[in-house]
Design a protein around this nucleic acid. Sequence first.
DNA 1: CCTGGTAGTTCGCCTCGCGAATTATATGGG
DNA 2: CCCATATAATTCGCGAGGCGAACTACCAGG
Lengths: 150, 150
Amino acid sequence: MVAALVRSTFLVNAVYAESAREHGLTPQQGQLLCVLMAQPYGMSELGAMLGLAKSSLTGLVDRTERNGLVRRESDPRDTRAVRVALTPQGGGLAGEFYAETCRRVERLSAGLDIAEQGALADLLGRIVLDNEVPVVFMEPEEGAPTARRH
Amino acid sequence: MVAALVRSTFLVNAVYAESAREHGLTPQQGQLLCVLMAQPYGMSELGAMLGLAKSSLTGLVDRTERNGLVRRESDPRDTRAVRVALTPQGGGLAGEFYAETCRRVERLSAGLDIAEQGALADLLGRIVLDNEVPVVFMEPEEGAPTARRH
DNA sequence: CCTGGTAGTTCGCCTCGCGAATTATATGGG
DNA sequence: CCCATATAATTCGCGAGGCGAACTACCAGG
């Protein structure tokens, strides 16, 4: 089991990275865009979600901002804080990247029938829930009652 | 399904990276050690297996060698070539890292019963097989199916 | 106020990954 | 036998990514 999980991880990683590359993104920048599709977040929140140190986040947002995909907005409630939001361009790219990545990941399981895909989704979904994985790649609103807000 | 797969990928990644870190390894160096547990390989073979460009491999092996975990041996059959092998120290560390990582990944699925773990292993195993084997179906470029070059 | 916590940034250091150019060796055809 | 070409690795320069420590600016509670 472990081996299959780890190997599928490398497989999905490779697919994710390639999809990002073809959209002119690094995997990290792609991940950032996907997280921000839901809503803007502060730097600290992003750091927690992506599992990065604050200083790493600063650099990532810097580079992504330099590419025009993301914008730092000042938080009216707290002068210190910053809200990172998608620019229109970033939003468009995020949508395309997300959709294309989904298509490719879906293609990986083309050898499974519908029931098996459902079973896989259920099992992995439970692992993800049990381990409290941050929402780095959200569900587009399929039937999974995975209501977890922050 | 896609979302659960992607999110579990990030989860396993994080576990892998943390296990590596606690063994004094980067994830890449850990991966290199794990590959070499089976047998020594040439640089080109390693590049294909890990999905890295030659120049990236040189650096990775340099750093890992500098840490005393790996050794370049000259190939008697081909003076140009090099065989990368684990040092005794590297072999020991590889074993520990591998075992500990397995333990942690296993722990991720602690919420599933034995039958469910079996089902998950089966489904993921099929995905891995379906997508990793087909060296067959490839023609447009020089690219291999699982190791993507450009 | 001032004091302690919080939000982000900056800095220096390293790892990683790539492509292009380079070196050295193999090998096959003429 | 020799040269042309292919192959195995390395080197170089560049940029992305990640970290911890130190720093700045601001919030809040007393």
